[in-house]
């Protein structure tokens, strides 16, 4: 059942490519507007590149969260999923995995290009890619809680960032400073360890919380 769900969701994602490209486009547009607005000076851009790329990635992930459960809620498939004999948290994990594959992982592939464009120092590329790979799953997992809580609301779009941005802040701080550490040539392993620990924590807690949130949203 879970594998069938995974196949179905990947197929659905493939059929609605336009919706999925939006966050990626947003990510690229944000990063490419900075040199125009701030200054084309490579030294200045290089010093803010880490922050710009990470803020862009975080907002892009936030943009795409709304899609995680909305369609299934509106057409009744979410009800069917919660009535499956399998625990709802496994269903949430599958949903999160699909969200990460289509909205999180591509960010990690595009980010080096944007780093190049913004003049990121050579030492920053490795921590940038590693931090995106390690932290975008956390963004999807935490986002599932917010998406689950707001799926039944018509104007959940405003509420969700308020709910989950505080949980995103540690990711942003440690990921951006990991890239900075790489740029300055110091060790960034400590930052990575924190991001990994945060991922482990959310991997355990978020599916449970999101499943409970979905039950509350459906028990109107």
């Amino acid at each position: 059942m879970l594998i069938a769900l995974l196949k179905r969701d990947l197929l659905l994602a493939f059929r609605s490519r336009g919706d999925l490209l939006n966050p990626l486009m947003f990510f690229m547009v944000v990063a490419s507007l900075f040199p125009l607005a701030v200054s084309p000076d490579p030294a200045l851009l290089g010093s803010i590149a880490a922050g710009v790329i990470w803020v862009g990635a975080l907002l892009a992930a936030l943009l795409s969260l709304d899609l995680m459960f909305k369609g299934d809620y509106e057409d009744g498939s979410l009800e069917q999923m919660l009535l499956m004999p399998q625990p709802a948290m496994l269903m949430v994990l599958v949903k999160v995995l699909v969200h990460w594959l289509v909205a999180g992982l591509p960010l990690a592939f595009i980010a080096p290009l944007l780093g190049l464009m913004l003049g990121l120092a050579d030492g920053g590329f490795m921590p940038l890619i590693l931090s995106l790979l390690l932290a975008t799953p956390t963004l999807s997992l935490l986002g599932a809680i917010g998406a689950g809580l707001t799926v039944g609301l018509r104007k959940g779009g405003m509420l969700m960032p308020l709910l989950i941005l505080p949980l995103y802040i540690p990711v942003l701080i440690f990921a951006a400073s990991a890239v900075q550490a790489g740029v300055q040539g110091t060790s960034y392993l400590g930052h990575m360890a924190f991001l990994g620990a945060y991922l482990a924590l959310t991997l355990v807690v978020a599916p449970l919380a999101a499943a409970a949130a979905l039950r509350i949203s459906l028990a109107r």
Binding site: E74, D75, S77, E79, Q80, L83, P85
Partner: peptide, 16 residues
């Protein structure tokens, strides 16, 4: 595991 529920909303995906 013994339930088949057909709701008011069908759960049929238009793009499948």
């Amino acid at each position: 595991s013994q339930l088949l529920y057909l709701g008011h909303q069908l759960g049929v995906k238009g793009s499948l």
